[in-house]
Design a protein around this nucleic acid. Structure first.
Lengths: 228, 228
DNA sequence: GGAAGATGTTGACATTGTCCACTTTAACCC
DNA sequence: GGGTTAAAGTGGACAATGTCAACATCTTCC
């Protein structure tokens, strides 16, 4: 304690939790500007540190964005979990997750694109473990709803049904993914009809799956990040 | 003519068609690097002009990317038109277009993202007219297939059916858009199962639409760029 | 209490998008 | 045809950025 309490207005040499501060600043700037083209230096400025301090916590701008993406996954997983709480009907749960998914994406398209939009598509293993966990949790919720009968009949979550369940998830996910991006990018609108459109598309898709599920061929993986 | 014919190996002061050359270079670099983060200056180098010459043809990097996107739309529209040629069955035509769409996106994800990925999402009117035309042509092909009975029964392309047809297109487009991006970003794989997966998802979706089409509410637009 | 490592800082460098002033060429008008 | 004008290309400048290297300061832990 070399600092005088009354005079220590300037923060100490060490920030305390720069890692978190930088990620939060990045999340803020990303959400405001809806672009990943902000500068590391601005984040440093916002955190009140020198332009090079972030490099002690992230090798790269890429790595930083990976961390931001991971936070996005955690937020989304939480949203989806919250949405299904207190819902008994498995179909209702599945629908609620879809709404949370689409809503999250539309609410922050830039973050959504960062998470799913192949910025890190090539280098797969660079993504933080937290992200995988969040993705795993999301998938588990969906599988549970399906196995509980969300698609008209219970489908036990066992080896024999894997390809069927994965097929259902693929249809579900790609439909919602596409809808989210069309809405987020304003390729479909207007904005105040989004909920209604989501409801329409969602239930048409679920009804289709109730009718028949196209099983996925052997050897197909759904994810990462939705890796199980 | 101050130039000696035998000595004029260095190109003339004026390039001749720099506009096209730059766009083509951009398309090349984009396709190779799968990223929009190339530099205008490199394009200039490739075209053999000074770093500032491109600015006589494009106000901005944004504007250049807009032109590249427009080319992408033309290519895609052409692909889709080719795919339906010589196909009688309307359902076959719709399926063929879907395959062309997904295939195009998976083949060049960066271009696809540039076209549909909201890089120019905010500023809508900056997009070249050519792009709108191409998008319009694509939509017309789809509408024709649907009206010819691709979804089990003919649905005349008239005022009374607009919302139904738009509803079908929304389901169709969002499903294929989502699938394309999941495949392109390797969120689903492996790569050599793409055709099979596409076929599965596609026909499940079409069957669903045959069964029932969720009409779109009043006032909804599909596009731009799929503006009608 | 001192060494080692983590965290921050300053300075430097090549690269980039974009502005400006200038030059060269082609097109057009009388 | 000769001269004006506008289009197309050039070179230089500037601030900003990602990233590297060398140095400073604080913490931790034997």
């Amino acid at each position: 304690m070399t600092q005088d309490i009354s005079t220590r207005e300037q923060r100490p040499y060490h920030h305390g939790d720069l890692h978190r501060a930088i990620v939060e600043a990045a999340l803020d700037v990303l959400s405001e500007s809806q672009s990943t083209e902000f500068s590391l230096r601005e984040l440093a400025r916002r955190a009140g540190v020198s332009h090079n301090a972030p490099y002690k916590h992230f090798a790269d701008k890429r790595e930083l964005l990976g961390a931001v993406s991971a936070v996005g996954f955690e937020l989304l997983a939480e949203r989806m979990a919250d949405a299904t709480k207190e819902l008994d009907s498995p179909r209702q749960r599945l629908a609620a997750m879809a709404r949370a998914y689409v809503g999250g994406g539309v609410n922050n398209p830039a973050l959504y694109r960062l998470m799913f939009g192949g910025y890190l598509a090539g280098q797969d293993e660079g993504r933080p473990a937290i992200e995988r966990t969040a993705a795993y949790n999301m998938k588990a919720l969906i599988v549970a709803a399906i196995s509980d009968g969300a698609l008209g009949r219970p489908i036990a979550d066992n080896e024999a049904n894997t390809r069927t369940i994965d097929g259902a998830i693929l249809v579900f996910w790609s439909q919602m993914h596409g809808l989210t991006l069309l809405l987020a990018d304003r390729l479909v609108g207007p904005g105040d009809k989004m909920e209604e459109l989501t409801e329409n598309v969602l239930h048409a898709m679920l009804d289709g799956l109730v009718n028949s599920i196209p099983a996925v061929p052997e050897g197909v993986w759904i994810g990462p990040p939705l890796a199980g």
